[in-house]
Design a binder for these strands. Sequence first.
DNA 1: TTCGTAACTGCAGACGATTACAATTAATAA
DNA 2: TTATTAATTGTAATCGTCTGCAGTTACGAA
Lengths: 344, 344
Amino acid sequence: MKKGRQVTMKEIAKKLGVSVSTVSRALQDSPELHIETKRKIVEAAKEMNYRPNLLAQSLRSSRSKTLGVIVPEITSHFFASCISGIQDLATTRGYNVMICQSNESIAQEKANIQTLVSSQVDGLLISLSRQTNTYEHLYELYDREINFVLFDRVQEDIPVSKVTFNDVSGAYQVVKHLLENGSRRIVYVSGPEDLYISKKRKEGYLRALEEFGVAEDPSLILISDLTLEGNLQVAQHILRMDPRPEAVFCMIDPVALDVLTEWKKLGIRIPEDIALAGFTNNPSSAVVEPPLTTVAQPGYEMGKLAVSHLLDQLDGMASEDPISIVLDTILVVRKSSQHFPVKK
Amino acid sequence: MKKGRQVTMKEIAKKLGVSVSTVSRALQDSPELHIETKRKIVEAAKEMNYRPNLLAQSLRSSRSKTLGVIVPEITSHFFASCISGIQDLATTRGYNVMICQSNESIAQEKANIQTLVSSQVDGLLISLSRQTNTYEHLYELYDREINFVLFDRVQEDIPVSKVTFNDVSGAYQVVKHLLENGSRRIVYVSGPEDLYISKKRKEGYLRALEEFGVAEDPSLILISDLTLEGNLQVAQHILRMDPRPEAVFCMIDPVALDVLTEWKKLGIRIPEDIALAGFTNNPSSAVVEPPLTTVAQPGYEMGKLAVSHLLDQLDGMASEDPISIVLDTILVVRKSSQHFPVKK
DNA sequence: TTCGTAACTGCAGACGATTACAATTAATAA
DNA sequence: TTATTAATTGTAATCGTCTGCAGTTACGAA
């Protein structure tokens, strides 16, 4: 293939014997142009299939009308939903979107930021990788006065706007649900302790226990590294506990699903023998047997809100001060939690 | 926030009292520069945190080092996998990626193409929307000599490179598996007939039947519009058939999952009463009860191959003539197909 | 007849980076 | 000493678009 040349204003100008600036004005529908000239130019442009070169426009205006998005992984249904929401809203507001995935690696996350900044994106939407435990790269963005918004996986101390779910209340709701069904010995399967969600969901878990007058029992708080092996170890560990817990709340659905599969293999009945609940509402959670009680996080909405706030910021429509938008989660009760231990 | 000004070559040049072109050469490590000058410039650039403006570079070189991707929907696990593969490979080869979703709408698909072309992407990777039944927008790309590759959802007649799965052989394999388990009355639940995959998978279905000497029975070929309602109607229709089919092969997993759910609700046992199989290997298919026999399509690999070929094309490493890459699918046998009718 | 004023259009200089070509200097050869 | 050449750096044009300012008409008013 030869290089398919694009039609430029210069070519339109030459064809019509006018100057490039006149063409430019005509295509912008400038009022200071003779109506007939304008008509001819617009017509010729259509005929020649002219498309403006966004690169040149961006360079000239120093606004690329492009946003950068960084998520830990695209294949996660939750993040895919966020991206979808971001896309849809950004498009309606005339922005393009460049998406990168960090693959849960801080090095990749930094590289992504570099690339997107070099690409002159007007702003960034970032959900941090699990590995991210230092934040200079974010402070650097802040220092360079590059607009960005954190969503879902955030770092609390950075003075930028954030969109998160109310993890505390979500966890509180699901644990309260388990308590209301009569369970008292409830396990919390946490991820690594430095993870934001590990902490927040633990907080909700403890709050619910406290409200029901159940004392905190450290032996009921287990930690998985979120790998399959880690999850299976936890599943087995729970069965060996004596007395056996009445319910288990896993920090995220994938953990709950691994636990569920392992238990079914071992002949444990859910929810008859033990209740189980997760958090996220993965698509799989609705179709497993038994269906998993969980907490839904509307990712599409989160994406929309995050991008909407970022664009307001860019347009100067938002206040100077960073804000924190907290979205409510939705408790989704399914069969896996229908276990009613009789209290003595 | 003020507009965070980026450091440019001009500023480095001014600071060091050299010309912009010298700075440019230094940063490209040009050999015709005095080594000491070069060192000072590189140092200053690092110190001032200089980042090249990709927009300007692209405009100058007419190569944006960016690829455009259009998929029907990002939230589909399969397409998310493709995107992930595309991203990973594109990144290692120094390209950025802009992703758009058509939401299965041809109008959106056209709009996406316009945007990406205007953004001066160097090439496009497109998977067509379900609604796409005219192809002028693709021929226009072709006429304008814009490089693009079709993947998964392709149109056969367009003379560009394509990456697809061997749908015929995939369907053949799974139907053969059903036949080997003893089924003879096998239903094929197709999507709309003009869909590429509807046709191809039907072809494989028929080939397997023929190989086993089973006559084609048009009443066993059902069509769903792929909505939940359509799928449920099909599910119910199958149960009313007399004699009842021994096995059902659904064109895509989501149909099979809807059928499975509906049948379980109606007390039909799978696979004891009837065997069921799908196509795609969605994550859900592995966790439903019973787990669904299906045909896996390695999306990540497909994405990698598609982008790899596109980049070869851009680099002039690929032949002028379009090629068709056909990937093999993988039969995944699970419990839902373990039904062994006794042949009389 | 001359001038002011619209009404149009073009010129030229950005935006940031690259690169052919010219210019300068210093060093070597004749 | 002068011509030649290599080494190093600067000048200016370019990519496609936008826009402040200046220039050119034509028109009616004085």
